[in-house]
């Protein structure tokens, strides 16, 4: 028994020290990157780009994934404060982890948000400009239909980052006197948003049966745009020139845009750019010159059939 115990412990100790030795490179700074969302593709891209940038700066980066557990983010923030890292980067809603952010602030450690949301606890938050993304696609719609026609909007005002997109699209369409917003639909997103958007769009198509009675569909994100596309195609009205746009340019949306059908445009966020800009913000903060703005926007790109394959 004693032998088993000794073996058990020495194995664990060996394992630990091996991992530990691998983790201690010559470090110009110790950075903890904490997120519950590492399993999501966008977050993976940010983190990879951040790590690549950190390598050039010879930082010792510890990526901590709490696998969806937000309370564990607070715990890990407290640990980072105890450990006295040089900076912390988070990818989670700051309002939900304020208890941990307070501990980090008390320890005098700066926190940079990587698409996290605005908070007084953050030096800055690096993200995509939701206003600009909505302006780009809404302007694309307005120009494509020549500033004239009926537009169906898919919005989601309950979620602040998506709500701002709807406000901007309202402004763009409102500035075109001959554009009429036929309906401002909030789809049920519990099934992912495509199915219910399709059902809602089918009802709108049924209520407006004449060719040309619907000029465009502007969606605040890709799923409703995909649902609307399915409805238009199922109704056999794909040749009426109905212009559909989304935002996020997810793989399914890119496929639809590349197919050259009604789904014409979406916005791609520059996830790598966000990760790199977050690393730059950390570097500036560590050198004693933190970024002035509480939000840093990384440019986004309009994706159409012309550039979807790039």
């Amino acid at each position: 028994m004693t032998a088993t115990l000794r073996k058990r412990l020495s194995t664990a100790a060996l394992f630990l020290s091996a991992v530990f030795a691998a983790g201690t490179a010559a470090a110009a700074g110790k950075i903890a990157v904490i997120t519950p969302y590492l399993a999501q593709p966008g977050t993976q891209f940010y983190v990879e780009a951040f790590q690549a940038a950190a390598k050039d700066k010879a930082w010792d980066v510890n990526v901590i994934d709490t696998k969806g557990d937000v309370a564990a983010v607070i715990s890990r923030l407290e640990d980072a404060a105890t450990q006295k890292v040089d900076a912390v980067v988070i990818n989670v809603d700051p309002a939900q982890v304020e208890a941990g952010l307070a501990a980090v602030k008390d320890a005098g450690i700066p926190v940079v948000g990587m698409d996290a949301g605005a908070s007084p606890y953050l030096v800055t938050n690096v993200t995509s400009n939701g206003y600009a993304m909505a302006a780009d696609t809404a302007a694309y719609v307005a120009n494509r239909i020549g500033g004239k026609g009926n537009v169906v909007m898919f919005v989601f005002d309950a979620f602040p980052p998506v709500q701002v997109r709807g406000v901007i699209a309202d402004a763009v369409f409102g500035n075109n006197p001959d554009i009429k917003v036929l309906d401002r639909v909030t789809p049920d997103v519990s099934d992912g948003g495509i199915a219910d958007s399709r059902a809602k769009m089918e009802a709108i198509l049924a209520a407006n049966p004449d060719k040309g009675s619907i000029s465009a569909v502007w969606a605040a994100w890709d799923q409703p745009a995909l649902g609307a596309l399915q409805a238009v195609e199922a109704a056999g009205r794909q040749d009426e020139g109905i212009v559909i746009t989304g935002i996020d340019a997810n793989p399914q949306a890119r496929e639809a845009i590349a197919a050259g059908g009604n789904f014409e445009a979406s916005m791609a966020q520059d996830f790598h750019g966000i990760g790199k800009a977050a690393a730059d913000a950390v570097a500036q903060t560590l050198s004693g010159k933190p970024p002035k703005s509480s939000v840093i926007y990384v440019p986004t790109k309009l994706i159409t059939a012309d550039n979807v394959k790039d």
């Binding site: 664990a12 991992v19 903890a32 010792d60 510890n62 990526v63």
Partner: peptide, 24 residues
């Protein structure tokens, strides 16, 4: 969880360690 974070060890190592410790 606390110690491994402070030692900057990958969070997934904790899972492997805990599972191994339970079985052992």
């Amino acid at each position: 969880g606390n110690g491994l974070t402070q030692m900057s060890i990958d969070s997934y190592v904790r899972e492997v360690l805990i599972g191994s410790i339970i079985v052992l």
